[in-house]
Structure formats: C-alpha cells, structure tokens
Design a protein around this nucleic acid. Sequence first.
DNA 1: TCTGGGGTCCTAGGACCC
DNA 2: TCTGGGGTCCTAGGACCC
Length: 415
Amino acid sequence: MLALVDCNSCYASCEQIFRPDLRGKPVVVLSNNDGCIVTRNSEAKALSIPNLEPYFKIKPLLDKHQVKVFSSNYELYGDVSARIMTLLSTLDDNMEIYSIDEAFIQLSGFNDLVSHGQLIKKLIWQQQRMPVCVGIAKTKTLAKLANHIAKKSKKLDGVCYLSNLTNWINVFRKIPVNNIWGVGSRIAKRLKLWDIISVQDLRLQSPKRIRKEFGVTLERTILELNEIHCFDLETQPQPKKEVFCSRSFSKKVFSIQEIKESIANYAFRATEKLRRQNCLCKKIYVTVQTSRFSDHIYSNGLTVTLPFPTSDCRVIINSAIKATEKIYQQGYGYARAGVGLLDLSTNTNIQPDFFHGNSEQSIKLMRTIDQLNNRFGSESIFIASQGIRRAWSMARNFKSPAYTTRISDLPIVRI
DNA sequence: TCTGGGGTCCTAGGACCC
DNA sequence: TCTGGGGTCCTAGGACCC
C-alpha cells in the first residue's frame, strides 16, 4: 500500500506558518516578478480567484476581498519542505519525494490505514504547522487520485483510502479524466471524442486499444487505475538528466548586451546545479523569446555541442554567449531567456564530497579545478582529497596526470 | 506596463551507415 | 531499364507533471 502526502496550498501555507494571524483568511502567492498567481489557499479559491492569472488583471478583485498577497520566496518553501520530508522519512524508509510539496510513502504492517493516515496528517500539523491531505491506495496513480478525493471531500477529513474500488465507482464516475495523474487537457480533449469523460470511463477501457491510439503512458495509467502496479517507488533521488535555468524579465529587453548578461547569469546558475550533482555536460541549449502576448513574436533556440564534457563555468558561459549572438535578432522586445545543460554524465575525475555544501573552501577548490581542467583538458585532473598518494593512485588507474595541492594554497580564480 | 520556472518521457522523422 | 532496405542514432516537438 502507498500513501501520497500532499501539502494543501503549499506556498500559501508556508507563508501562514510565520503569519498565524492569516489563518482562515484568503492568501495568494505570486510567481517571479509578481507576474502570475501560482498558489491560492482554499479561502482564496472560494472567492473564485483563478490560478495562473496575471496579477495586474486580478488585482482589483484581490483588493476588493482584502486578499493577502505574497511575492514568492522559494528559499523559504524549500526549507519548510525539507523539514516536512525529514519528518516523513522517520515514518518509513521507503519514501519517494515527488515534488516540493508531495511524497509517496510505503505503508506496511498497519491494520487501520485510515487511522494511520490521520496520524501522519496530525503529526505534520503539530510539528510543522503544515496542513496536508493523505491518499492511500495500491498504486501511485490511485494514491494520487485518492489524495484528490481527500482534498475535495470535507467529510473524509483529509484522508482517503481506496480500499475496495467497487465501493468508489460512483465517485469515479463524477471525476473528470483530466484529474488523473498523467492525463492533461490535450489528452482529455481527445478522449472526449471517444466518449471517455470520467475516471470510471477510462478505467474500463482496453489497455491495448488505448495504447495503439494514445501510447504506452496512457496504457500504464489504465493498468494502474485497476490496481496493476506499473510505476515504481523511487526511493533514491535520480540524478537530473537535464538542468535548466530560465526567467522572464520584469520588463521588455531590447539590447543584446542586456540579454547576454542574463544568459551569462543563467548559465552560471545552471552550472552550479550541474556541479551539485557532480556532473559534466556535453551540450548547451540557449533560448530567447518575446512575450507570447506580443504583436511581434519571435522565439529561437540553439543547441551547441562542446568539444568535451565539462562543468567549467567559463567554457559554459562563453559558449552560451556565443550562441546568444547567433539567435538574437534586433528589433524585438524580449520577455524571456534561458540556458539548459544537456547530455549530462557523471564527473568521475573529482571526488563528490568536495561539492557538498557551499563552504569557502569547496568554492575555492571548484574554481581551481576549473582552471586546471581548462589548462590541461577536462579529463586529466585529479585533486588530492585524501592525501597526495590517493590522487597519484587515481591518476595511475586512469592513466592521467595528477595535480595535488593543499586546500589552503588554492588561489581564487575570478570568473 | 505587467502573463511562472522548472523538469520528464515518448514519438516521429531525418540523417547516416552498410 | 532497373533506382534498396533495414537498422541506429539524433533531434525536435508534443504532452505531461508540480
């Protein structure tokens, strides 16, 4: 059995932890640059405030109902999330952190699963002041669905256990297919042509027939809706296969110089993410776009293949800037730009423990490694993490030259 | 004036090889 | 006069998630 624990209106609830005076009052949180509403709590939803609505459009309604508005504070949300996940991990080792506000947990050895779900909910509220709902079922897709039902139905008190599916058929008939995990608006629209409207309609389809028309993913979803396990619990976080950093600008940007500065900035941040998971990248993707709502629309992107896999900031930033020059076209007001790092591979040259934490020492060291890799080629450098002997022995194994130094001797390299 | 920021997986079709 | 075909790799794009 699996439980999906999902925070209620996560960002808004995070803000309320530090503003208990706002309990029971409508709260919304805005995206970067205060562009759109990204979270509404239940009180705000009750006022018919739509999600992902531009702030400037909805501001009169928010003012009218005295809705408390927050700019987003992702550091805070990450912090609260980490504490909740740590708390959950004490309940069972088999746990998958699915997103900033959700986790799947394996439930074994409990007779009364509803009571156990209530216990989880109570624990998180008491210790972290975060309201959550718990969905319990045999597969991940059903646990997600159970959580959805728990959120909608007041009488379930935040916990829904799909024990015997035949008891839930009437509920399944009332839930539109697009509420199923993996079924978005596009597929829902195509399913409608087949008269598949509700969760129950989809459950009854032949998986084989659906696979032909919609692909393997939807086939698996149908199997999961019928308690046939297809999606595993991923208890170890998988390393990212791509790393991105992109932002909308707070106002239109016309000059290539400003675009380049942003791109350099995003490339630097993406490289930080790359290093944190101890990877090298082989390709860089750069994109610039005007607003979708502009009269004069332009969007372009370019993928550049590097001569060798690297995590060298300067190589990555320089390549990104060169790519920018190729895709930038004069005369447009740009609204957004981004940098992606693709084709990642594990960096076997460097001991991963250097990169944990952001201490002054490890930053110095990363920069030195950059400098050396740049000079000698990225495959060749080993740093003595556990003494000179270890570096030389690694170097011998890999038939590469070694470089050793004491951390205190490392120079700071300006980027 | 101002319209999010990340990710993943799958598929179709082109390029290329023998 | 006849003008291959199968396999693999890569890429772009579509669809989904929170």
